[in-house]
Design a binder for these strands. Structure first.
Lengths: 315, 315
DNA sequence: CTGAAAGCGCTAACAC
DNA sequence: GTGTTAGCGCTTTCAG
């Protein structure tokens, strides 16, 4: 069922069939109809491999992210896939496990069959100089030489802190490596967790329990908590309840990040999250812009934040 | 940087280069070395499009699933991607939104650039007769004519019920459409939710609160609850606490499904979940078996269950 | 063991 | 408007 078959059936040349299939060039109404009929009768389907051999474009991009288990990342993945679909390209998902080696792998030329990469890295620098078109998605700037779409962590944290109230002792629970994203100006105490998981957040809060239950000699008891990551919010809420604290009566809690988990925590947790749809559309747009050469500039975009007030801040 | 360049550089023919690159055929040690050197020096990378034009194989499969937001599905997606990677194929993720029309779309011949489809359908029947190689993943049999890998819901529910205790009034919370998966023999009361989300489960439990808090004239108060879906478990736990019930003192709770959410609920929830790794390996293996013609039989496989006991059943 | 040539199915020049 | 002729980069016959 090749194009030649259709051409023969319709009594025209391949070029004409191609023109009809792609809707380009001039074809008379009669010929067009004849070709379409032949395509229909033969059940012809263009061969994507042949097409991309010529166009040197696969019509597929890679989305490389740490993992799919977190609701935040799953939400971004869904949005990216949707945006890509709208643009007519497929998405190969590549979980890196946050391993720089595997992140580097996807940035190597010839790493796969895809045209370019959207990368959500785990570190602040890229493991290699990318050999393929790439747009980085993250909550911070990683490297000036690559295009990037950012949902700025500092701004999110600041907004989340505001949402928990205007005054009171503030604690921010964050993965160790994210600790320096907390703006000094907030005067917050940072409780470091091993990583951004719920379990790590739980352990971190329990380890610093005096901060929440009684305060320390130098610090009054914390009554405002902001946590980085929608998943970790669950762990923090769980830990605070375990310490016998009521949310929001004793402590008001807000999470930076979305992804579904906070909505069904007990109580539901207020979130400050990037507009993932906007994020995805910009990222996909930038990458495709690189690919078709319509925009070769290395851009740095920031996306808007969405605040969802829930019971954890006393809504 | 084509194969012809390498051939010229090494002073051999393209055929020889091809043989070296693919490790097939007989090439003398000297020639092999010369070709490898040329490849190295030129930084040659084989063109995947040209390769798949010949092999009529893209080296990519589609994973079509309702969405990525649920931990259960995200876990399956991760496992499938890992299994596919091991087998050397990429995975295009296609969220269908549970829409039969979109499920049908991915089963249409020529739907994409991929070689075959792993489908997690939302309904019990496929929307169309598949036009591409397909393996269905699910918790029930959908159609005898397609290959399928199943984590049987009935068995999971039965095991979960056992884990909540040997006796006592049993309630199963399940999405309406899954209600008939609950084995009669358990003598359970089924509480139907709109869907498998946490929110729907919460509302369902609250709507039937008398069942849990005081019992009905005909039924004693339920003290064992099984819920379908790792996500819905969160909603059920939240609802039970809202009703003033203690887990596990007043009611023991177990979830069918995994995905991370149950582990960080309060209290952590016991789960009965399919071995997703095994599931993924079988599914990918079957699909690739179809593709390379090494196994053309339509198989029906069942996978094992993993029981994770946590505090919600009084562990 | 290696080379030359003929495609894989499509698109792109360049004619008519 | 439409046909002809070359390729895209790789894998195969088929020779040698």
């Amino acid at each position: 069922m090749t194009m030649a078959d259709v051409a023969a059936r319709a009594g025209v040349s391949k070029k004409t069939v191609s023109a009809v299939v792609n809707g380009v060039g001039q074809v008379s109404r009669r010929t067009d109809a004849r070709v379409r009929a032949a395509i229909e009768e033969l059940g012809f389907l263009p061969n994507p491999a042949a097409r991309s051999l010529n166009s040197r474009r696969a019509g597929v991009i890679t989305l490389a992210l740490p993992h799919l288990g977190s609701g935040d990342l799953a939400a971004i993945a869904s949005a990216v896939i949707a945006a890509a679909e709208t643009a007519g390209v497929g998405v190969v998902v590549e979980p890196t496990g946050g391993d720089p080696a595997r992140e580097g792998e996807v940035l190597r030329p010839g790493a796969g069959i895809t045209d370019g990469v959207l990368l959500i890295p785990s570190r602040r620098t890229l493991p290699v100089v990318p050999g393929v078109p790439v747009v980085v998605i993250g909550d911070r700037m990683v490297q000036r030489t690559v295009a990037q779409v950012v949902a700025p962590a500092e701004a999110s944290i600041t907004v989340a802190a505001e949402v928990t109230g205007e005054s009171g002792e503030l604690v921010v629970v964050a993965a160790e490596e994210d600790a320096d994203l907390v703006p000094e100006s907030l005067g917050a105490t940072v409780v470091p967790a091993e990583d951004a998981s719920a379990g790590a957040a739980f352990r971190a809060v329990v380890a610093e329990r005096t901060l929440f239950s009684s305060g320390t000699p130098n610090r009054p008891r914390a009554d405002r908590v902001v946590t980085l990551g929608g998943g970790s919010a669950i762990g923090v809420a769980h830990a605070l309840r375990t310490l016998g604290l009521d949310i929001p009566a004793d402590v008001r809690l807000a999470a930076v990040g979305g992804g579904g988990e906070p909505a069904f925590a007990d109580p539901p947790i207020t979130t400050v999250a990037p507009d993932v749809r906007q994020l995805a559309e910009i990222a996909v747009g930038r990458l495709l812009g690189h690919l078709d050469g319509s925009d070769r500039t290395v851009r740095y975009d920031e996306v808007g934040l969405l605040v969802t007030r829930r019971a954890s801040t006393g809504s």
